[in-house]
Nucleic acid binder design. Structure first.
Lengths: 201, 201
DNA sequence: CAATTGGCATACGCAGCGTATGTGAAGAAG
DNA sequence: CTTCTTCACATACGCTGCGTATGCCAATTG
């Protein structure tokens, strides 16, 4: 019943290690996650981990890359159904805020990630979300919906705003209420970028 | 010549420990900073550290609080000389970006801080910069310079934007050039909050 | 001049990481 | 089928670094 070929076994152990690490990193954080513990949870030892990922950080990096790819994919789906480019751009930011509410993403990608791997924008996974947002902005520029905007600078800052908004929501006593304030505030902030934005007299 | 009274000795050792920890945290990061090493650098042992700060995290927290207070004070001075409330608000954000370029601040406050202590806005030091920015926004609201803005939500998001902008600058090949793009982008982003902002057709 | 407090050092145990080495099974070669 | 080789993974060891328990001595107090 079990896999037969060697290569299948290998991808299976890699997957097991990733899953175990991902779970441990999400639940207790990078520093508190003991390699001995979470590898034995899936019937392996640190030997396997060192063989496949080099060290703890290597596994962490792989996990972050995986999650990042999932986030990018989810955002792509979400924005695809937006009525127009501007709404898609809004959805991108709000979607990011909402995803950042998931404990796993907050802990691994937003909290420990930058401390362990450094600046998110220079991760090996290139942080798909920032890239996607930059592309959105470039599209909006070309079609004249926004003007005088530096796409990369704005993408990074808007991304930062989303992360901090998410942190705020996640630590709030009433996450739902705060979430509404955050998304409203986000819309208001970003609306200012748009040409012919609703004038506030 | 040395201090005589006991209480003077105590504040001196506290200061020594803070300075040594601050230096180590800034240079090699929290995780890599060995308590044995940096305490012996100032002629003390971990015994003193545990006595005064409880544990490594306790010292780190004290260091973060200290730096945060310095940052808040620096920003206060900077904004005080602004011609008007709006420019003061702009200065606040740009000043934050610039401070975030200093390696010590980036490493301790922006990078390791959130990972070790959690959400910056809920730190014991209450993150003076966010609070100050929130107050600025409240002032702008009252004087009618901005409208329809949630001060807390906006303060947090703008703060996040500043941090990410700073990260971008710090990791760039040409920090000076990127710094200009970042501050310009920041102005552009925040300008959208202002009532009667320059219309972009 | 005792007595006591407490600031700080010393000593010990333990957990967790990294490396060096071992092992057994899958695939290749004849 | 047999033998050899490879390599995925386990085992074993040493080291570093944290936390705690304990000890010591100078400064304070009466």
């Amino acid at each position: 019943m079990a896999q037969r070929t060697r290569s299948e076994m290998i991808v299976e152990t890699r997957a097991k290690l990733m899953a175990a690490g991902r779970k441990a990193f999400a639940e207790v954080g990078y520093a508190e996650a003991s390699m001995d513990h979470f590898t034995s949870d899936v019937g392996l030892t640190r030997g396997a981990l060192y063989h496949h990922f080099g060290d703890k950080r290597g596994l962490f990096e792989a996990v972050v890359t995986e999650i990042d790819a999932e986030m990018t994919a989810r955002l792509a789906i979400r924005t695809a159904s937006a009525p127009n480019a501007w709404e898609a751009f809004l959805e991108q930011g709000i979607g990011y805020i909402e995803m950042a509410l998931e404990p796993e993403i907050r802990r691994i990608v937003l909290r420990d990630g930058p401390a362990i791997l450094g600046d998110p924008a220079s991760w090996p996974s290139a942080n798909g979300c920032i890239t996607a947002m930059k592309q959105s902005l470039e599209g909006l520029l070309e079609s004249g919906i926004i003007a005088d905007v530096d796409p990369e600078a704005t993408a990074r800052m808007v991304n930062g705003a989303s992360c901090y908004a998410a942190q705020w929501i996640a630590n709030a006593e009433d996450p739902l209420a705060v979430s509404k304030r955050a998304t409203a505030g986000y819309r208001r902030l970003v609306e200012g970028l748009r040409r012919g934005a609703p004038d506030r007299r």
